[in-house]
Design a protein around this nucleic acid. Structure first.
Lengths: 369, 369
DNA sequence: GTGAAAGCGCTAACAA
DNA sequence: TTGTTAGCGCTTTCAC
């Protein structure tokens, strides 16, 4: 009857102590499982806690200890199943180690990311996993480091920030897949990415997103090896929304020196590119070859099934969690995070290059404009 | 030099007060923007805070005020773009009202959901948005209510819990779409859902997930109207993972009284069903008609494009956020959350029912077994 | 093993 | 408007 009306005051250690007839300190020790407590006292305290239905105030605990048993995750776009899957890897692993996981979504927006980091820092999470937006700005990440809380980067490394990074090296697979395209006769290979840049691509341009930089480097390598000029003009950035993706795709396909193959940098872009290709009445791979990063279920459903570069996303999430947990517990037994490899999955969207002319002459395409 | 080595102690209001030569209370008032402070003092305090690089300890604040300016979101499966999109609606809206949003993913697991709620309660979030797993167990949600913190349910209502629910009423659209299937000659219409149940479906079975209950009710209504017996045997639950989805699909299509149309309860199931249909060498909609809930981009990419029931997910997320924020601020101006409607988007996956025999006689299907 | 008392960094109540 | 004094619920000295 003591708590039926209105909001009851929470039961505190003091209450439990009184009930168990011990000091507050002893009660706290028994409840918090630290310090020295006799079996008898512990039992009495635990019993009292039970009857009073005591629930520890984690906030107060965190304030004193600085620990929250929580890992904070910051991702750019939770709508992208890539991160959804990674998130599951993180949660599963973290939970197994006794850590809660909270996530903040930033919508690939730097300000939001800075905010998210601040919030998590304020909440005193024990460790961070961040998939940073591609931006040279990393003051907020440095703040995390200064706070002394472990930080693990996911997918992208940030220059000037010396922390663990869980990512696959895209250079090799980008090179390999580009080589296959070249072997199939493609020289006009386009690359579309959400990477934000005012400047158009040219060899040597500084790219602040490591996975994008690596993909381009791999492509350039393949062209170099084949002694072919790299088609700078077909590298397109800023494909952050469906409209841009559609526009870029159209540009790429209707240009007088049209692309014969398109590489989509992520699943969301791929969706837009394929849709636009279909709208233009073109056929994959007869009219245009297509290759994308990330292997989602829908890529196997469309005809032809798409050739993709698959990444072990769940495992990477798990590895990221393992890495932070280790650091939090200071059990960094020198165990380096494993190397992850992406691999090319050949399905049916890459074919022999079509001569540039024929695509351009096709009247219904012009009509589609 | 005072903070170069090791972890520096955070600067506190006391430090700022000293620097500004005012009392701790005045400094706190100026910093926290409450109470009465003269312009002069405020300025001095703010300046001092600036030079000392003061950062308020939100945890301490929360402990005193009970408020955290944070909304906690609990969803079942962040890999499902349905929730990803909802999440964006929530974040955008909450942020606009000055609330941070943190999310916990439960993997459609009740224990995880209970845990998530506890964590969020412990972190003293100001309000909850929960997309509960379909389970009659709702003690944890009642605990939220007892805590006095606003709770808004997303997608599913929970019986015995009197809170705002942001969801579309599926009955009408389920009825309508089923009627169209019946018009096209379908009587053997299957329904596949992740809903967990030991018992097979039969009329009158209690279903603890409101959207599923509504969909089935709508279907039954349509059959009733058409004076046709409802095919109880084609309602399949427990399609929680790809393997079960594949198995169920096979069952449904190879049975002696096979389904002529399949309705997938969500996008993840749809992926599995379509893949299996293709594997069996069947064609949509010639051999089997198909209908699914949620309108994702990939449904427009496959041939034929899929007929779907689209829901205004982003708007629903936004509405949920608006609702909690209102409750938190106690500005419930009687404004009821708007009604959301799902709508049938006819594309190309529904065709006329094929006679049951012909599908079963198809030799390559038996081969696929 | 135990308890008293002093924090953590902040807000809140009360006088002045 | 200002300052003093108590808290919030917990952990952590430090004696005993």
């Amino acid at each position: 009857m003591n708590n039926s009306s209105g909001r009851r005051r929470d039961v505190t250690v003091a209450d439990v102590a009184k009930e168990a007839q011990v000091s507050k300190a002893q009660a706290a020790r028994a409840l918090g499982d630290y310090g020295a407590v006799s079996d008898e006292v512990r039992e009495r305290v635990l019993a009292a806690a039970e009857t009073l239905n005591y629930r520890p105030n984690e906030l107060a605990r965190t304030m004193n200890t600085g620990k929250s048993h929580t890992i904070g995750v910051v991702v750019g776009d939770i709508e992208n199943p890539h991160f959804g899957l990674a998130m599951r890897g993180i949660s599963d692993t973290a939970k197994a180690s006794g850590f809660d996981v909270i996530l903040i979504n930033t919508g690939e927006n730097l300000d939001a990311e800075v905010d998210a980091v601040r919030v998590l820092l304020d909440k005193r999470v024990d460790g961070f996993i961040v998939a940073p937006v591609s931006s040279p700005d990393s003051e907020h990440l440095h703040r995390v480091q200064e706070s002394g809380r472990p930080l693990v980067l996911f997918d992208r490394k940030v220059s000037g920030l010396d922390v663990d990074v869980v990512a696959v090296d895209m250079t090799a697979v980008a090179r390999e897949s580009t080589a296959e395209l070249i072997d199939a006769g493609h020289e006009r290979i386009a690359f579309i990415s959400t990477y934000r840049s005012e400047q158009a691509f040219r060899h040597g341009l500084t790219i602040t997103s490591s996975p994008i930089a690596e993909r381009l480097a791999g492509m350039e390598l393949a062209f170099q090896k084949a002694r072919l000029p790299f088609p700078d003009d077909l590298v397109r950035f800023n494909a952050g929304d469906p409209t841009s993706v559609a526009q870029i795709t159209k540009d790429l396909l209707l240009d007088s020196r049209a692309a014969t193959a398109i590489v989509a940098s992520d699943g969301l872009i791929a969706l837009g590119v394929v849709e636009e290709i279909q709208k233009l009445g073109l056929e994959i791979p007869k009219d245009i070859s297509f290759l994308m990063y990330d292997d989602f279920a829908w890529t196997r459903l469309i005809r032809p099934p798409l050739t993709v570069i698959s990444q072990p996303v769940y495992e990477m999430g798990a590895a990221a969690a393992t890495a932070v947990v280790r650091k939090i517990q200071r059990t960094s037994t020198g165990t380096k995070t494993p190397d992850f490899k992406a691999k090319l999955v050949n399905r049916g969207s890459v074919g022999r290059a079509k001569s540039i002319k024929s695509a351009n002459m096709c009247p219904e395409i012009y009509g589609a404009l």
